[in-house]
Design a protein around this nucleic acid. Structure first.
Lengths: 189, 189
DNA sequence: AGGCTATCCTACAGCCATTAGGTTTTCAAT
DNA sequence: ATTGAAAACCTAATGGCTGTAGGATAGCCT
């Protein structure tokens, strides 16, 4: 026997995130995680409340990482440049970490969601929108609009929804960003 | 004993769709379905290949229904009116049938997807876009853009993503549609 | 050294999916 | 009306996953 595995909730979450990217979010089970650490499943319950707990941790990790990248992307930029940088960070993350990206959409309770990096992300969208000079209420509408486009586009793309047409996805993405900028500059009061 | 249940793949799919809307797509299991028909699980295998088969059938059913409603919505309309009608049909369906709406996003194989009503839906988007006079290539980009917005917005809304701000979701939706129309009318060549 | 505590274990129970192979109902053809 | 095959449904068994209860043990602290 080679001593203890030295498990932590964090290590488990980290490993789960890697598994999610490699095998898919739905393949991340406590059983698979236990196999990976050469440990019995029951042992995981010392570190995780249950399998739901693991999924929530994965969601929070993904939101954290996503918010970090978004923050770096918009640093020192504003206006359309900031918009493009944030959008690309979002899309790049989804492509580099498909499993984590699915995890980021795992439904969280209201209280957990309120303390997640999801709100950070939402505030960053607001920061990017500053340059477009909208009122507070309109900014909220615009944040929802932006969030919808980012989520929808990356979801469709990562699900292979664009793979069947010969038309380049990269161009579609550029058009999408241009269209967004256009819509924001002429926001329908 | 009260005779046979008279199962069919269609009846099972129908019941599964109702269960999805009532309890959530992920709660639709062969076991639950068997309980509902007061039948043993193994009996279902005479009608369904396996549980994956059931999920695919649910996805196809949902895409079918969605395409039907979208088709009715745009009949006799064009331009922004058609866009709004299609968008509302999409959103209404997602709200009325949350479980089916999740099912509609269940990943399909390329060959199955190609024969699904998803392509119908995509062609309807193209039809709506006719009024905006885009080239063939640009229309493909615009279809992806529209699909992204519809999917993203309804996903966020049905996941309760807009419930925390006091700002009305209905207004956000109207702004979103106006913004879409704006972007399409001034499509970035 | 002794003891505490976190860590990890065995054992068990429950739910779900799937397969193999048997029984019963239905229905069409005699 | 009988029969015989196909369809519908069943029992039984396997294996994977989650979760709980309670026991053993390693590492650390005094």
């Amino acid at each position: 026997m080679a001593g203890r595995a030295g498990l932590t909730a964090f290590k488990l979450t980290q490993a789960g995130a890697e598994m999610a990217d490699d095998l898919g979010f739905e393949q991340v089970t406590l059983s698979a995680l236990a196999r990976r650490f050469d440990v019995k499943v029951a042992s995981l319950y010392s570190h995780l409340k249950n399998s739901e707990d693991l999924k929530v941790r994965l969601a929070l990790l993904a939101l954290d990482e996503l918010a970090d990248r978004a923050g770096e992307a918009i640093a020192g930029r504003s206006g359309k440049n900031a918009l493009i940088a944030l959008a690309n960070a979002y899309r790049d993350y989804a492509q580099a970490h498909p499993g984590r990206f699915v995890a980021a959409r795992y439904p969280l309770s209201d209280t957990v969601a309120a303390t997640s990096s999801g709100v950070k992300l939402s505030r960053m969208l607001g920061a990017v929108l500053q340059a477009y000079g909208l009122s507070d209420n309109e900014q909220t509408h615009a944040i929802r609009f932006l969030g919808s486009v980012f989520l929808g586009y990356t979801t469709l793309e990562s699900a292979g929804g664009f793979a069947h047409t010969a038309v380049e996805a990269q161009i579609s993405w550029e058009r999408t960003l241009d269209a967004l900028d256009q819509a924001l500059r002429h926001w329908p009061v």
